[in-house]
Design a protein around this nucleic acid. Structure first.
Length: 507
DNA sequence: AATTCTCTAAACACTA
DNA sequence: CTAGTGTTTAGAGAAT
């Protein structure tokens, strides 16, 4: 255990340090601040939402003064607002590209924001500004969820896990009264998000179903966990119950941590609190939670746990912080050995095509030209990956084993790194712009299908997906045997043929 | 200062 | 024809 950190020193928010003491102990020791201080002294890793109020910000820069300048705001509110700003920054800085792109907090980046020191006075619907969200107390407060999260919640809340746009509107309206008075532009944003965000897939309408216009939308299972993770990280009111009333048991703590919308919300209830529960194992290891979105108990994947057990290295207290870091850096040093590989596993999470798993902001364009800085990879890789690979601390309960399984399935995805994404497709419109001229030029040259945005392509060619998946699955197997290149030649030829057949009809 | 990211607006095509 | 839906582009603005 290291020495007490001076207040000015940046804590390892990325979760490098290791906790062996339970968080409930901290709560029982008294006030949160004291507990947090104690945690710091003990080098404990805190779940992100606990660490937030205390943690200085990587990259500095919270801009509390930028908060809502709503007249009449109380000091406490301002404090909370500052906290929210800080937490946003902190969350952003954690670096999972996915999380950054699927920000839990709406307006992380651009767009007019509530409470911005705008020229225009805040409209009634904006009262509440950036204050931590409490839909019950302040229905006019803009929800702290990005549209991605809102849509995700709406879809998840549907029994069939698929909704037409209109129902998504309705769900949002029902759960977030803010939008009732908001300008209608938000619907456009929803549609925009659905269209551009890779997380959401259009489902071909069942002929028997008559839902009117449009299609059904669902969450791409491949990105589901990421959305959950993003949602999970939504900052919430620092003075919420979890802070003001230390629970007497870990269970109590679990049940009250990180309410997804608000406690008692239909969404929360329907999910039985499961979706965002933080099991003890995770609490003990905030690092994993922060970086991996490991939320054991969240709809375990249909895989065989027996085969998925990892050779997890149990963490012991003698691991020093530096050891942790070193281990992390080794693991993250480009060669990410995945503990488990299930080439034959038919987990839906396994990407069928590495190429498909990127968006505008990924390393390589479809055409192979490299016009991206891929900052998400650069800036986020190390921290996220370090921690990601530190998933071997515990653990004794099945829940955590499940989480490992999920983690490893995710890890299996055959790419350098990965998941850049979620709605980086949406967010990387910068790249989109950069691509624009290039793609236009290319389209003129008659390679249109190849240059279509990913999302478009995904929805455009469902018919051959089975075939393609089979090929990819075979490719994965053959790859292991070192004959990947051979297959590629075959598949490329096939795909090319198909493409050429399709092209004329498209234009 | 440059980049990244999200939101917003708008145009347009398509469809019920 | 209208309204809703889906796609795409452009730009604003905050954060990094």
């Amino acid at each position: 255990m290291g020495p007490v950190m001076p207040p000015s020193k940046k804590p390892e928010v990325s979760g490098i340090s290791v906790a062996s003491a339970s968080m409930s102990h901290l709560y029982q020791t008294g006030s949160l601040s004291r507990a947090l201080q104690e945690a710091e002294e003990l080098d404990l890793v805190l779940p992100v939402h606990l660490a937030l109020p205390l943690a200085p910000l990587p990259g500095g820069a919270a801009k509390p003064e930028k908060g809502t300048a709503t007249p009449g705001m109380e000091d406490e509110e301002l404090t909370n607002l500052n906290w929210l700003h800080e937490s946003k920054n902190l969350l952003n800085s954690f670096g999972d590209p996915v999380l950054r792109s699927v920000s839990p907090v709406g307006g992380e980046g651009g767009g007019p924001r509530n409470g911005d020191p705008d020229d225009t006075p805040p409209s009634p619907s904006m009262v509440g500004g950036d204050l931590p969200y409490d839909a019950q107390r302040n229905p006019n407060c803009k929800p702290p969820y990005s549209f991605s999260c809102l849509i995700f919640m709406a879809i998840e809340d549907a029994p069939s896990k698929r909704l037409p746009v209109k129902e998504i509107y309705n769900w949002i309206l029902e759960h977030f009264p803010y939008f009732a008075n908001a300008p209608t532009g938000w619907k456009n944003s929803v549609r925009h998000n659905l269209s551009l965000n890779k997380c959401f897939k259009k489902v071909d309408k069942d002929r028997s179903q008559s839902i009117g216009k449009g299609s059904l939308w669902c969450v791409d299972p491949e990105y589901r966990q990421n959305l959950i993770q993003a949602l999970k990280k939504t900052p919430y009111h620092p003075h919420a119950q979890v802070f003001s009333t230390p629970p007497t048991s870990p269970q109590a703590y679990q049940s009250m941590s990180s309410p997804p919308i608000w406690p008692g919300s239909p969404f929360f209830r329907k999910n039985g609190g499961v979706l965002l529960q933080v099991p003890q194992g995770v609490i003990r290891n905030g690092a994993r939670m922060m970086s991996q979105g490991l939320y054991p108990g969240i709809r375990p994947l249909p895989i065989n746990p027996l085969e998925s057990r990892t050779a997890a290295v149990r963490h012991t207290d003698e691991h020093t912080q530096s050891e942790q870091r070193e281990r992390g850096s080794v693991l993250s040093g480009g060669c990410r050995k995945h503990i488990i590989s299930h080439p034959a596993c038919d987990s839906p999470l396994v990407s069928s095509d590495p190429k498909e798993d990127h968006t505008y902001s990924t390393n390589q364009s479809d055409d192979g030209s490299d016009y991206t800085s891929d900052s998400s990879l650069r800036s986020n890789g190390p921290v996220a990956r370090d921690v990601a690979n530190d998933s071997d601390f515990d653990d004794e309960d099945d829940e955590d084993d499940k989480s490992k399984i999920q983690l490893e399935i995710k890890k299996e995805e055959p790419r350098d790194w990965p998941i850049d994404t979620i709605d980086s497709a949406l967010s990387s419109q910068q790249h989109n712009k950069k691509r624009h001229h290039f793609l236009k030029a290319k389209q003129r040259m008659g390679v249109a299908s190849d240059t279509l945005p990913l999302k478009k392509r995904r929805t455009e060619k469902p018919p051959e997906s089975d075939d393609e998946e089979m090929k990819e699955a075979a490719g994965s197997l053959l790859h292991l045997a070192g004959v990947r290149a051979c297959l590629n030649n075959i598949t490329n030829r096939t795909a090319k043929g198909q493409k050429e057949q399709k092209e004329p009809t498209k234009n």
